[in-house]
Amino acid sequence: MDESTQSYILLLLADGNLPTGSFVASSGLESYVKHGFFTNSSSSSSTATAAQTNKAIVDFIQDSLGTYARSALPFVSDAHIAMSRHNSMTSGLEESLHRDSEASTLQQIKDLDFLYESMTLNEVTRRASKAQGVALLTLFSKGFSSPLMPHASPNTELSMSASLEHFVDHYKLIVRREEAPGHLPICWGILTATLGLSLDRSQHLHLFLHARSLLSAAIRLNILGPYAAQQVLLHVVRDVVAQHHNSCKDLRSGLSPGVRRQDGEEADDFDGPATTWPLGEILAARHDLQHSRIFNS
């Protein structure tokens, strides 16, 4: 897919108004603030206070994005790779062989989904991740599939393989029937691979959207002004996203059979997905204990 098509897809996916459910998620920020962790020292100068507030939100974004990238990005990557492989294998194949390939891809995606479920040991995070995952699949089948036109369907660079479109619909059905959890990183990988976005861009955008939704949540929580949030997004978040993208882009879930060492230990066991911020885990899980709250996570 050419560069301009990739850029065009990025424009669509980066739209803050896409109905992806991220608007009701604060990824633990609300609970973090409620528990007294979001502090700005009581300084007399308002410039100093603003600087403290900016530092506090950037600290949170770094820690939150750090643990999210390390635990979720390997799943984005594996789902994206599985879908891309499925696409290249089925193009030009006969109908009967399509089905075999689809069954094997489906199994891979389900395995990833269940592994992510078993690693997300926190009901609040699980709930938010599943809600956003299924929202992405719905967005695809309702919003990104080819539109009906009076004449022949539009033939652009964007026309997606029918077999991938079908796969997404099928997976949405499976998630609806609760035969798979439908977690956000897996669904993001499926969606972006189906649209033809490269793995690198898919990973990068996913982390950017996580960081940006934290800033949106900060605005709604009234701890940061909308202009300040834009400043942080333009001048700081870029580096933070690039940092975590770099350190996690080559990580995989470890589900694909790894190289067994002589002693039987999986070589990649300690290089797989992991959480990196135990405090964040505790506070995110305690979201539901808040006496009053405006977010779902």
Binding site: V58, D59, Q62, D63, G66, R70, S71, L115, S118, M119, L121, H235, V236, D239, V240, Q243, N246, S247, G272, P273, A274, T275, T276, P278
Partner: peptide
């Protein structure tokens, strides 16, 4: 039923950014 993986690691990567020192 559960896989709890926790990684606490000193970061050494150079970011080269004046705004965001590593945590």
């Amino acid at each position: 039923v559960a896989r709890d993986a926790q990684l606490l690691e000193k970061q050494t990567q150079q970011s080269g950014s004046k705004f965001v020192p590593l945590r």
